[in-house]
Design a protein around this nucleic acid. Structure first.
Lengths: 151, 151
DNA sequence: AATAAATTTATAATGATTACAAATTTATAA
DNA sequence: TTATAAATTTGTAATCATTATAAATTTATT
């Protein structure tokens, strides 16, 4: 993504073509999500924007996220129990959460998988795939510690 | 599942072999989840058990669910934003939510899909797949109403 | 610049979940 | 069985995320 894509004019245009009034709060929230692809919560976004926008209210962040979601510019996801996170990457993709280090990795869903990921006779519009397990570096570490025990 | 599987002795045994102390609250919660495969929330379970167990507290339902989850006897899932649901069917499977009628359908994950559902180099331990869309009967209805408009 | 409509703000309310300490239940050993 | 220690349950208060609300502000339109 080019730097110019974060300009107000660019975001303004994208919101207009999505049928959304480009208010100040919405622009800031969307720009934050474009720059921070780490699935932040509403509260994290609020706290991050606050220093530069002292008048921003928590409710505006929630309102903006709801509006952006309705227009398809961002999508919600749940990683832990009961807290919504948001993602400006709206194409279908999977999320991998490492049980050891907690890191989240995005991964693509191959077309065949995505198509099959739904029983016959059902029409799939959107998919959320969340996989828990061990990421490569944690796998390596646990292999090493197993070796140490052996030798 | 046989009727005998709901007996206290059976549930008692399953909990013991999972390394869990078979307390009264846990037995009732697990039996409810075995019988009601509709992904109930903690509050739904609490309200359903209350009439027969007037002394049951909401906190015990939460505690029991947490203990059952730790032992792998039930698994949590999120269907709507911010409310945990529980499932006594712990094998990997997908959930389909109809955007029109709201019904939830469980569907199996084919082995190949399940195996591929994770990038190379990662070790998958558990998967959650949630698909939104239209179920067969709602698809049919929307096709009918489209026909009416045409004719 | 004036007006109407939509959005934001600040705050209160709600809903789900967790924390906590006292009371009870469960497991273990005498 | 009874005594004891450990774990669990209860009831309540506290917390955390989110939604509701009404007044103030901003945005789009005339």
């Amino acid at each position: 993504m080019k730097a110019s894509d974060y300009s107000n004019e660019q975001l303004d245009q994208r919101m207009r073509s999505a049928g959304l009034r480009p208010s100040s709060a919405r622009i800031h929230v969307l720009r934050y999500l474009e720059k921070n692809r780490n699935h932040p919560t509403a509260d994290r976004i609020y706290k991050a924007l606050r220093p530069d926008l002292p008048s921003l209210s928590r409710a505006s962040v929630y309102n903006s996220l709801a509006a952006l979601e309705r227009s398809g510019l961002v999508r919600p996801l749940t990683l832990d129990g009961c807290e919504l996170r948001y993602d400006a990457f709206v194409e279908d993709h999977g999320h991998f959460r490492c049980e050891r280090c907690g890191a989240i990795h995005d991964f693509p869903l191959a077309h065949s998988e995505a198509a099959d990921l739904c029983p016959d006779g059902f029409l799939a519009r959107r998919k959320d795939v969340l996989v828990w397990g061990l990421c490569p570096s944690c796998l390596e570490e646990s292999a090493e510690s197993a070796n140490e025990k052996q030798s």
